[in-house]
């Protein structure tokens, strides 16, 4: 019983932590886009990158696609037919592999914040 309360508490802490992390990312990305918009020289290096998703349920995929779209500079475009790849348009891609890596790290953080491994029955 106590360990369950502890696990739930830990989950809430992780969710709040992820919320704070995302708010920070949102602010940084907004300032980056704002800076690019007001300065005359554009540092735009856009691209569309395919990202293999670790999310498995529709809810996780929706959350992932929406959080990417919410972050300035990145926009989810579509998902392939077997729902394994997400196609993301980025305004400042630089290297495609670097961009992929950033989003993979982001997805891992998101999944560890929302997944409920400790629930009996494993239902999420």
């Amino acid at each position: 019983m106590l360990s369950r309360i502890g696990a739930e508490l830990l989950r809430v802490v992780r969710l709040v932590g992820f919320g704070a992390f995302f708010a920070y990312e949102l602010l940084v990305a907004s300032l980056q886009v704002a800076w690019d918009v007001i300065t005359p020289r554009s540092r735009l290096s856009p691209g569309i990158v395919a990202i293999s998703m670790q999310s498995t349920t529709p809810a996780e995929m929706t959350l992932m696609a929406n959080l990417i779209s919410l972050t300035p500079g990145t926009l989810s475009l579509t998902i392939n037919e077997d729902q394994s790849m997400l196609y993301v348009h980025g305004m400042y891609v630089g290297s495609a592999d670097e961009f992929r890596h950033t989003l993979h790290v982001f997805e891992r953080r998101m999944l560890s914040a929302v997944r409920t491994h400790n629930r009996p029955g494993g239902a999420s």
């Binding site: 990305a29 907004s30 886009v33 554009s42 856009p46 300035p72 926009l75 305004m91």
Partner: peptide, 17 residues
């Protein structure tokens, strides 16, 4: 901004924030 996708990025996100 240069194309539809970047412009969408600017409007949907910066405006949301």
């Amino acid at each position: 901004l240069a194309d539809v996708y970047s412009r969408l990025s600017a409007v949907t996100k910066a405006a949301t924030l």
